[in-house]
Write a protein that binds this DNA or RNA. Sequence first.
DNA 1: TGCACCAGCGCC
DNA 2: AAACGGCGCTGATGCA
Length: 604
Amino acid sequence: MTKYLFDSDSLPPQLTDRDDLKYITDFSGLEKVSRVLEKQKFIYFDCEVASENFENINPFKDKIRLIQLGNEEKVFIVDVQKINDRGKVSEFLADLLRERGIVGHNLKFDIKFLYTNFGVLPKLNFDTMIASQIISEGNEGDRHSLKAVTSRFTGKDVDKRLQKSDWGSEHLTNQQLEYAAEDIRVLRDVFKVVRDILNKDGEESLSGKIGSVFGLKNPVAILEMTLIPILAEIELSGIPVDLNLLNSTLEDKKSEFQLLYFDFRKRFSVDPFSPNQITNCLVNRLKIELPKTEKGSYSSQDTFLRNFLDYEEVRLLLTIRTLKRSLDKLLEILSYISNGRVFGEFKQIGAPTGRMTSLRPNLQNIPSSLKEIFKAEEGRVFIVADYSQIELRLAAEYTKDERMIKAFVEGRDLHRVTASIIIGKRYEDITPEERRLAKAINFGLIYGMSPKFLVEYSKANYDIEISLDEAKQFHMDFFDYYKSFRRWHNAVKEKLKKHRVLEVKTLFGRKILASRFTDAVNYPIQGSGSDLLKMAVVFFSKMKDSSSKIVNLVHDEILVESEKTKIKENASIVGKAMEKAGKFILKTVPVSFEISINDRWKKG
DNA sequence: TGCACCAGCGCC
DNA sequence: AAACGGCGCTGATGCA
């Protein structure tokens, strides 16, 4: 519990009167802060938010209590509750942050609160958490909390115990204010260390506001820093939902699920969600041969069970599972809705490759059958824009494979090209089934899939049965034809023999560590895709106006909500942004993308 | 009881 | 020697 050390409004002399630390509780204090900080190009920044429940802290509900601002010498702790004039504080922040940058840790979080509390969204950010993640190159072992980052880069220890203390109480304790100031002090040291590390991969030629404000030259870091406020805006926008359709779908699935679930339990005396009971039933009662996991237990994956659709138990089980998944996803979405929109979050560098991830709820794995739940508001539409065959294009560029590049330059369908090679038929004569097989081969083999796995993979994902010998032949033919891919894979194998861990680079220069062969060939391609999308988002956000906003991002797709009256203009801007990013990342291979307009989130 | 782990599956 | 990768969410399971 928080203790009140002082019962007067003012703090003890040792705190307020220190030269390097000022506690600001009134408007004249704000003016003093402005005078001192107006000479800064950037300001060290942090804030403390009062929340009933820190697990569920919410920028739309919770209030900022303290805003800490600092330069190299001074720290100002602005108590916005004591000042008690939101308009004045807003004006002060708007003036201060309009042209100046801020340095902070996990800034997307802070600036969302700044926006909801004071209508200010800082555009020039340097985030030491993002910096640390870039420097870590995807190393899974590294943590990126302020405490971990400070310890790793400066050797100092930060006490975070008061982070979730009571920031709403009338009198903050001396310790709370010292805690608030300490974050600013450590940022000074961390900032310079991580910036200088990043700048070892700097480009002198690079210009731009973020670069000049922070003295930052690393292109990947500049891209990421630019993205921060854009993601904050996307999260604050939320994505609109058709509540009627959501509820009716939910009811339909619920009743259907309950019917089938209890029917299953009654008829077979087995809980369909107990792996033990299910595998027992399938193996012992129905004499179905199931594959085993390495631990010795049976696996009851849908893909295996689909071999036994003549058993009613199996058919029913598969239906129940699918229903349950839809139901869970709908409930997950529902629990994050407010005012007809879902407010999810992004982890900006969520995967080692640089890919973003989506959480609370995850809006990057919505089953295609449920995407229609998402519906633009009245008078608005969705613009659904996604890159086509982007990983293959990036792989062609990355390996500089002449034949694959040529196919793309000529505008060919690469799956058909591959099909004609491995089947030995003319490009024009490839059947849809043959094209599907080639698709499996293209996607699998560039990332080092074994012929054995190709057999399983084709069956599971493309419903195509091939023998192991055929798979081996296709494997040979693929690498004989796309010669650079064999050279690339062999080079990676050689390097991994010499070194335990390999540093690979995306086309944009993002560095990623890989210790397995499959990672070392996959990461640079997946990572280049993430660079590409992030860049397209940044370009779009610079070109767009207020008649459109991004509402979701899914690895190679940008979902925009636009005013109906400006569909054409906005669709064209999305296209231009994607094209521009494409030209930047891909120098020899053309990009291709599809843009469709719809009330709902679906293509075509 | 709570936590860590895994399997399974949705998306890319 | 052999190897497709990434994520988040749910629910069962096993351990303290």
